[in-house]
């Protein structure tokens, strides 16, 4: 059979990429001193840890300690998302090219990019000496990081709107403010709300982690139990976190679907 061969340039690209990937992994593995023995031994070691966690610690004392911490993570994530949503909403209009003047939009975008560049954890440990150990610091860090990410996403939604309704409002004598309220906001609100919920899902995982440096939430509990080698209790913390994230994700995802796809009409 006569199958046409791949063009030579593509084949060269393919081989270069394969070589580059193999070379990069070998270089990294060598640099990190990862040997075959360590890789082969890892499953056994992980098995020991998992085995040590069961049976889980379900004593009343453990539950009383862990559950409030898990919920604290939920509150941090929600409060952080609300801060991010409230502040990023007006800012995203300033960042959108089709709403704001060119220079304003460019400067606002750069500010949002700069905020986004710092991971939540780095923000959190910069705030820690100022606002102290606890949930407030975590909330602040999540809120500020969310302004950056939500601002960018929302401004992109605003830039992608249909100009038709705006022209209609203009031609019927509406002001610039009327255009924003009746033309832009109804078009972007569903997508932006679903981004807020999506950010909440991300923030929930981030807030679980924040406790590692003492910024509130369930991470503190996990790292403490692991340090004291109390593996059954660490297992309980882990299971509770997984349960919370799964439930919150499911609720948030179903609301997002409802917002984006509208009501399902049974025919």
């Amino acid at each position: 059979m006569n199958i046409p061969k791949q063009p030579i340039s593509q084949r060269i690209l393919k081989y270069t990429l394969t070589t580059a990937i193999v070379f990069a992994s070998l270089w990294s593995a060598a640099g990190l001193e990862i040997t075959i023995e360590r890789i082969l031994d890892a499953p056994r070691q992980i098995g020991i840890l998992v085995g040590a966690m069961f049976p889980l610690d379900t004593s009343q004392e453990a539950i009383d300690r862990i559950i409030p911490k898990v919920f604290e993570s939920l509150f941090i994530a929600w409060a952080g998302t609300v801060i991010g949503a409230i502040i990023s909403f007006p800012v995203s209009f300033l960042a959108a090219q089709n709403v704001a003047v060119g220079a304003v939009s460019r400067i606002t975008k750069q500010i949002l990019n700069a905020i986004r560049a710092f991971p939540e954890l780095i923000l959190a440990f910069v705030f820690l000496p100022i606002t102290g150990l606890g949930a407030f610091t975590g909330t602040l860090a999540l809120g500020i990081h969310s302004i950056g990410t939500l601002g960018k996403l929302s401004s992109e939604v605003i830039e992608g709107i249909d100009e038709g309704p705006l022209e209609a409002i203009k031609s019927s004598g509406g002001s610039k403010i009327n255009e924003l309220i009746f033309g832009v906001i109804p078009q972007v609100m569903p997508t932006i709300t679903s981004y807020w919920l999506y950010r909440f899902e991300i923030n929930l995982r981030a807030s679980a982690v924040l406790g590692v440096i003492g910024a509130g939430g369930v991470g503190q509990e996990l790292i403490n139990q692991l340090r004291f080698r109390d593996f059954p209790r660490a297992g309980t913390v882990l299971i509770c976190t997984i349960a919370l994230v799964l439930i919150a994700d499911a609720i948030s995802a179903s609301i997002r679907n409802r917002i984006i796809q509208g009501k399902v009409v049974k025919s």
């Binding site: 360590r38 031994d41 890892a42 070691q45 992980i46 020991i48 840890l49 995982r205 981030a206 679980a208 982690v209 590692v212 991470g219 996990l222 790292i223 692991l226 882990l238 976190t241 997984i242 994230v245 799964l246 994700d249």
Partner: peptide
């Protein structure tokens, strides 16, 4: 996917 990256890191530092 539900377990955050730093939780994995903590677990693996204990294990390996």
């Amino acid at each position: 996917r539900t377990i955050p990256d730093l939780f994995w890191a903590m677990l693996f530092t204990v294990a390996v």
